[in-house]
């Protein structure tokens, strides 16, 4: 860990004033300290935002919920409003990390997790995400965990979050505040594909702070499922995960939401695939079509072709579970 100065502001403006090119905000610290200890990040200034007033979950005028950026992952998953109205969010959170980490990690921080790519995580190897221009050994190396969608020559890493997959599916919004003021970013526009700037995971500006995540009114509470496939039963990152949600009118699908984790540099969602389901009967043939469409542009790497078939089956399974009623 490189030496840094430590600051603990009490107000958002104070925090923003401290932010700069070599600074980082720290909340739970579960990923940032991990990266700093691995010698992958070297902030010279840490701004501890835990005393900022961002711990509330409040109803929005539209009928959704506004989740303060400092709300802990476990706290969020176990909030009665989340459990009742947004079980998809709760299920996604509880599928990730460990109880200890979920007690520490914040909502805002969860959005900013870095990839688990082996090469990104080993300071002794090249990685375009870590050292722009150094190359991507994963593209032709160990890439079983890596992207099948939206990857670039520069980077084939995937986003590791589970919560984000649910938020993408629900169409959440990210509230931020920076020197230029406040803004709301649609979840689909928050994370980026790697393109030729893989070191940029998201569209936040350097000094911008995530202040909240807003959930829209529709939570698909009755018909949703989060299915995570991984190499052990718990405490492992996803090979493929699916957040699936259906709005049913009897057996007919009125609306559908599907997002995939573990397959791309961001949670993968395709509105066209969801629209394919609208008006259809909730049955495997329809789900398979949606899966086909969602994976249409999938490109396997040498080690991860299985993910395409796995994702296809997982989508069908998750939609089937959702159609049968949210599993308790």
């Amino acid at each position: 860990m490189t030496p840094f100065s430590y600051h603990r502001p009490e107000a958002i403006d104070e925090a923003l004033a401290l932010a700069g090119p070599d600074s980082r905000f720290i909340a739970g610290g579960t990923n940032l300290l991990d990266l700093m200890k691995e010698n992958l990040l070297h902030p010279r200034r840490l701004i501890d935002i835990n005393r900022l007033p961002l711990r509330e979950i409040t109803p929005t005028p539209e009928g959704g919920l506004l989740i303060g950026a400092l709300v802990g992952n476990a706290e969020l998953a176990w909030d009665p409003r989340i459990e009742a109205r947004y079980p998809l969010v709760a299920k996604a959170i509880l599928a990730g990390a460990s109880p200890q980490l979920r007690n520490m990690a914040s909502t805002g921080g969860n959005l900013l997790q870095r990839t688990r790519c082996y090469y990104f995580y080993d300071a002794q190897t090249p990685c375009n995400k870590r050292e722009p221009g150094s190359g991507c050994p994963a593209r032709d190396g160990l890439n079983r965990m890596h992207a099948i969608l939206g990857a670039s020559d520069a980077c084939v890493a995937v986003h590791p979050s589970d919560l984000c997959v649910a938020l993408a599916a629900l169409g959440a919004q990210v509230h931020t505040q920076g020197p230029q003021g406040k803004r709301r970013i649609d979840f689909a526009d928050f994370h980026r594909l790697p393109d030729d700037e893989p070191w940029r995971d998201n569209n936040l500006d350097e000094r911008e702070l995530v202040t909240a995540v807003e959930l829209p009114p529709q939570g698909y509470a009755g018909h949703c499922a989060y299915l995570k496939l991984r190499d052990r039963a718990s405490y492992a990152f996803a090979l493929v995960s699916v957040a699936a949600a259906l709005d049913l009118d009897g057996e007919r699908i009125r609306g559908a939401r599907i997002a995939l984790g573990g397959v791309a540099h961001k949670p993968w969602r395709l509105v066209e695939a969801e629209q394919l389901l609208c008006g259809r009967r909730a049955e495997p043939a329809a789900f398979a079509e949606a899966a086909e469409r969602l994976l249409q542009s999938a490109q396997p790497l040498a080690g991860n072709a299985f993910k395409i078939e796995l994702a296809r089956r997982a989508i069908v399974r998750a939609l089937g579970e959702a159609a049968g009623g949210t599993p308790r």
């Binding site: 688990r116 082996y118 090469y119 995580y121 080993d122 002794q124 190897t125 050994p137 032709d140 190396g141 160990l142 492992a236 990152f237």
Partner: peptide
Amino acid sequence: DHRLGRYMNHNLA
């Protein structure tokens, strides 16, 4: 990674 001659999943995650 045989090109690097290096173990890559050297952690408990």
